[in-house]
Simulated scan of single mutants.
Amino acid sequence: MYNRNLDIQGSGMTSQRTRDRLVQLLRSKGIEDEAVLHMISKIPRHLFVDEALSIRAYENNALPIGYGQTISQPYIVARMTELALKTERPLTKVLEVGTGSGYQAAVLAPFVKELYTVERIKPLYENTKQLLRDLGYRNIRTLLSDGSWGLAKEAPFDAIVVTAAPEQVPEVLLEQLAEGGRLIIPVGQQGTQQLLQVITRYPEQHYETVTYEPVQFVPLIRDKN
């Protein structure tokens, strides 16, 4: 699926000039964290999609990656990363639910010490694990797992980023947050309005929810446990 030549620099519609135009667009749409924008400008998104779609990689659009899944639009990836970073606590251990193409993990990983990312679709898991390794990421731990159950053996997490939408927030994910940790998650039924939420855990299992903009994600599918 992936371009194994690893043409990181790109050319034409995958060149640095095209990436810089994308960054300008994201800034105009309200992304404020310059470190996140810098990361968006440097990461070769064209390697995270099928080679036939590489000329569209730096559009601000979601693109299909097979198996009924998509790579999120760059704005959403930047937004979720920015929201994860808006905390006073260092992001030592972070969980991503829904590895997909690996692009969200690639953008987030430079800001954290350890990033665990889980994917339930085996071909995506295998392709993405190899791509992230080829790109030199050493702090990303990829696992084949139903992420709706979280990753209890590695909890608690300073942040959990979910890249698929449940109809309701899974309680088990809230339980795996460290105190002060944040869950960044889209919530809502398919075909209706989904909302991006940030839920922060405080002492005595008190949670505070802040709702952000409307979004559209594929469903978070929960296997039987």
Rank of each mutant, 00 (worst) to 15 (best):
residue 100 G to F: 06
residue 109 A to D: 07
residue 176 Q to H: 12
residue 169 V to G: 04
residue 164 A to Y: 14
residue 200 T to H: 03
residue 176 Q to V: 11
residue 178 A to S: 15
residue 159 A to M: 06
residue 165 A to E: 03
residue 209 T to W: 01
residue 205 Q to F: 09
residue 145 S to W: 14
residue 143 L to K: 03
residue 127 N to T: 06
residue 83 L to P: 07
residue 200 T to Q: 15
residue 138 R to F: 06
residue 93 K to G: 05
residue 162 V to S: 03
residue 150 G to C: 08
residue 120 R to Y: 10
residue 74 P to S: 08
residue 82 E to F: 10
residue 192 T to Q: 15
residue 110 P to H: 10
residue 119 E to A: 11
residue 176 Q to K: 15
residue 192 T to Y: 12
residue 143 L to R: 10
residue 142 T to W: 04
residue 121 I to E: 05
residue 102 G to K: 08
residue 72 S to F: 04
residue 143 L to D: 00
residue 177 L to Y: 03
residue 148 S to W: 10
residue 152 A to I: 07
residue 113 K to F: 02
residue 106 A to N: 10
residue 137 Y to V: 02
residue 170 P to F: 13
residue 180 G to R: 02
residue 202 Y to A: 12
residue 160 I to V: 09
residue 88 E to R: 11
residue 145 S to D: 11
residue 144 L to P: 01
residue 134 D to Q: 11
residue 123 P to F: 06
residue 181 G to A: 07
residue 133 R to S: 13
residue 124 L to K: 04
residue 129 K to M: 07
residue 98 G to T: 10
residue 204 E to F: 15
residue 172 V to M: 02
residue 107 V to T: 08
residue 83 L to R: 05
residue 77 V to M: 05
residue 91 L to V: 11
residue 167 E to P: 01
residue 175 E to G: 08
residue 76 I to R: 03
residue 103 Y to L: 02
residue 166 P to F: 11
residue 123 P to H: 09
residue 156 P to H: 13
residue 207 Y to G: 02
residue 107 V to E: 02
residue 71 I to M: 03
residue 174 L to P: 04
residue 206 H to P: 00
residue 186 P to F: 11
residue 187 V to K: 02
residue 117 T to W: 08
residue 104 Q to D: 09
residue 164 A to N: 12
residue 137 Y to L: 02
residue 209 T to C: 13
residue 130 Q to E: 14
residue 162 V to H: 08
residue 178 A to M: 04
residue 120 R to N: 03
residue 211 T to W: 07
